[in-house]
Design a protein around this nucleic acid. Structure first.
Lengths: 136, 136
DNA sequence: CCGTATCCCGACAGATACTG
DNA sequence: CAGTATCTGTCGGGATACGG
């Protein structure tokens, strides 16, 4: 997704804590995080065990080196994954999910389940909507 | 969730069923949807009861007419909200969450809970990371 | 009041090339 | 192998103005 950010406008000055509809609420922050296309994919991948940079790149198809590196760094900063460097001749780096990251995967599971169960309903709704639209 | 996803639908057949890391998995689609900054906010707002266009605009601070209209339309298409037009002289339109939408809010709740409980840990991790970074 | 259409900017993803 | 640097196109999304 594209994150708009109000940059120059600066009209989100007031940050009412506890109000989800204010921009600075923790929920909003988390949403921005998992909104990231790759974070969830990477996290669930690592939930299956540690993996090295290029292995991740191969596993999560479509991710560019840039995004992989960038996302991984962010996730490490957030304490969701850990980075282990092994000083071999060609440097070996592997990433692993942290306990904190695991709790997130667990929480994520409910919406993944939702997707599997309800997506057909969404598809149906979509088809109905489009049919109605076309007919008119 | 490494495997076994994509048991449902069968609607996007040609794209490597069962591979979450392929772009067309329902989970991916859902992620793209809730990745949208406004969908979750709107949905949780409507979970508190039906609301009219401008009321929503006022409630979800920072949303532009364009994004509001656009997001609402998409949500309606997906069957998450319903749109009711009342033919008064100045047209009156109100939006309400659907049963399907409510199931999503419910699923969403677990990550909202996660955010509230774990965000402090994430902040701490972030501070630690930044401190380490600055020190080095 | 409820939108839609248009313009425009800048954030972000992707490709490519280079380094330790 | 594991990244970083840069350059570029795309597109989300805000502001504005107009139609129903």
């Amino acid at each position: 997704m594209q994150e708009g950010t109000q940059t120059s406008s600066g009209h989100l000055a007031e940050t009412r804590a506890g109000d989800v509809y204010a921009a600075a609420c923790p929920t909003r922050q988390l949403l921005d995080r998992i909104a990231d296309k790759w974070t969830v994919l990477l996290l669930t991948t690592l939930d299956g065990g540690p993996m090295r940079f290029n292995a991740l790149k191969r596993h999560v198809e479509g991710v560019s080196q840039k995004m992989l590196s960038q996302t991984l760094k962010q996730m490490e900063r957030d304490g969701l994954v850990s980075r282990a460097v092994e000083a071999t001749v060609p440097v070996t780096v592997s990433y692993a999910i942290t306990p904190l990251g695991e709790t997130l995967v667990e929480a994520l599971q409910s919406i993944i389940d939702w997707a599997e169960i309800r997506m057909p309903a969404v598809d149906a709704a979509r088809d109905a909507y489009d049919a109605r639209d076309t007919a008119a």
